[in-house]
């Protein structure tokens, strides 16, 4: 890596704290977001790191939709907006069909609420659905 190549990394503890404190994310939701960011297109990752570390507003745009519009007009939190605009870039036909859809709200269901046979089934499959912790370097940074 030469001196002009930007390091695409953020501090994991700082990111986790901001997600939990500012937007009440659970640990599982932090992991979902982190792995989502790791899977983003390079230009989205770069914009995220610049925004997160230096407060630079992203200039991401796809078919007339900008990151700023997703935040200011659609009401998404900034992290959600990065994941959303990345999806629109990767799969615009699906993404733009979903974008205007109305939002409902559901809650998670605790395993102890499930009927007994399903409780057993979910517990057996739990490990398959839990995201691993991302690799963190000695500085506490995760490389996106």
């Amino acid at each position: 890596m030469d001196n002009n190549t930007m390091r695409i990394a953020v501090n994991y503890n700082k990111l986790s704290k901001r997600l939990k404190d500012d937007y009440h994310y659970t640990t599982g939701e932090v992991l979902h977001t982190v792995w989502g960011l790791i899977g983003c297109k390079p230009e989205v990752k770069e914009a995220f790191v610049k925004w997160f570390n230096d407060g630079i507003e992203p200039r991401l745009i796809i078919e007339g939709v900008t990151w700023s519009q997703l935040v200011n007009e659609r009401g998404l939190n900034p992290y959600n907006a990065f994941l959303t605009i990345n999806f629109l870039m990767k799969d615009p036909s699906t993404g733009f069909a979903l974008l205007p859809r109305n939002i409902g709200r559901m809650e998670s269901v605790r395993v102890d609420e499930l009927r007994p046979d399903l409780k057993k089934y979910v517990e057996e499959h739990r490990k398959e659905h839990e995201l691993p912790e991302p690799p963190v370097d000695d500085n506490g940074d995760i490389s996106l």
Partner: peptide, 12 residues
Amino acid sequence: FSHYIRAEVDMM
């Protein structure tokens, strides 16, 4: 439901 993804976290 045991791993529900909220719209506030990832709208897509």
